[in-house]
Design a protein around this nucleic acid. Structure first.
Lengths: 218, 218
DNA sequence: TAGATTGTTAATCGATTAACAATC
DNA sequence: TAGATTGTTAATCGATTAACAATC
């Protein structure tokens, strides 16, 4: 594994912002840009320009003074830092609308993820086609995760089955579990659980919305 | 609108944590609990107990010393603070897998949101049923948003149509726009845009995953 | 050289935490 | 009363920002 010189403890906020920078850089690269200034990146990523420079400085000196950052180089560096420079395999449990949406989500491939398998326990769904994949029976989960070295599991089942799905995924050996259901699930300490609740952001927005009615300002 | 006494400027971090508290409280209420201590809430919401007490104190005194917080009361208070104590209507543009998944997402109803309409520009999808809803042609968007007082718009179309979808939603008059596509979209300053990128969290997790291989600790 | 933009310091700002008196 | 837990202060910690010398 390649690690850049300065390996101080990097604040979590920095790591959380890197994917946003990468996103903007991929967008710029797609438009054919060669270099970008922290000022321009600031607009796209909605982060203060000084902070971008400071964040990147945790990992080395990637820019040229007077010029800016070389986009392909910076993309590569950030991908290495995050570990998205090689492909990571994902297994999805649940082949309903949510599972299908995630399996065919455009943003995954471009950023180093590959949906390697989709499982369901419903006989009617097993055998269905989702993009290039065939839905497999959940009894195959252990074998496939092991054989393909799958590290990421996605729970895309109804909330009442979420815990059972999580248990199966953990037994199969995934390292990270993404829970898209609104249920609480528990996992062993060796597995990293991410509860990604799409409603949480709506609620948070609501607060500012009701204030914006009465008062000026965002 | 009911507002509690202390209306100091509330830090953004507090607002972002409230939905997590609410989530945990709804879970506890579902289990039949009457009261909860900040220590117990701390476990469920994964936030320091002192911080929970401090966060809540921005809005008033909701607890009883020696006892804890009354769950139904606290649920009600947080819902009022966030504005989720009355129903907010959502329109979804895009009736594919993603749109269907969001439309039938269990977590919405429980937390004050109602998917009021789903639109698509594909003749083949117009007229389809998703739960209780019939997919409508996108030409109906303006009328329906106006008539039903819809404030939230969700973009669930392929990335290449995302900007066009955003424009239509903004013209129709939504106040908040949730973009689930990996595309960059621009909106007028009067509309709040939320880019909810499910891959961002995966990338962020990846960083810690690669470190966990070599070093001890989370 | 002149202009532009980085890398980095120093100052500010705000969030987090521990601790404890108040009080149920 | 004794035990428990809040509300709140005070101390710490870390993140953000402005500013500017270094340098392309």
């Amino acid at each position: 594994m390649i690690v850049t010189k300065t390996e101080r403890r990097v604040p979590q906020g920095v790591i959380e912002r890197l994917p946003g920078y990468l996103n903007a850089l991929l967008h710029l690269r797609g438009e054919g840009c060669q270099t970008v200034s922290s000022a321009r990146l600031s607009e796209l990523a909605e982060v203060n320009a000084a902070q971008i420079r400071r964040d990147l400085a945790y990992f080395g000196q990637f820019g040229k003074r007077g010029v800016g950052y070389d986009i392909p180089l910076l993309v590569d560096r950030i991908q290495r830092i995050l570990g998205s420079n090689h492909v990571h395999r994902i297994a999805i449990l649940g082949a309903g609308n949510l599972g299908s949406a995630i399996a065919s989500y455009d943003g995954l491939r471009a950023r180093g993820f590959l949906v390697a398998a989709v499982f369901d326990n419903n006989r009617l769904k097993v055998g269905n086609r989702i993009g290039d994949l065939i839905v497999q029976d959940v009894s195959e989960l252990n074998r496939v995760v092991l054989e393909q070295g799958i590290q990421f599991g996605v729970i895309a089942v109804p909330p009442e089955s979420a815990q059972a799905a999580a248990d199966q995924m953990c037994r199969a050996g995934v390292r990270v579990l993404l829970n898209y259901s609104p249920a609480f699930v528990e996992v062993p300490a060796t597995v990293t659980l991410h509860n990604t609740d799409p409603v949480r952001e709506l609620l948070h927005t609501l607060y500012y919305l009701s204030r914006a009615d009465g008062v000026a300002g965002a």
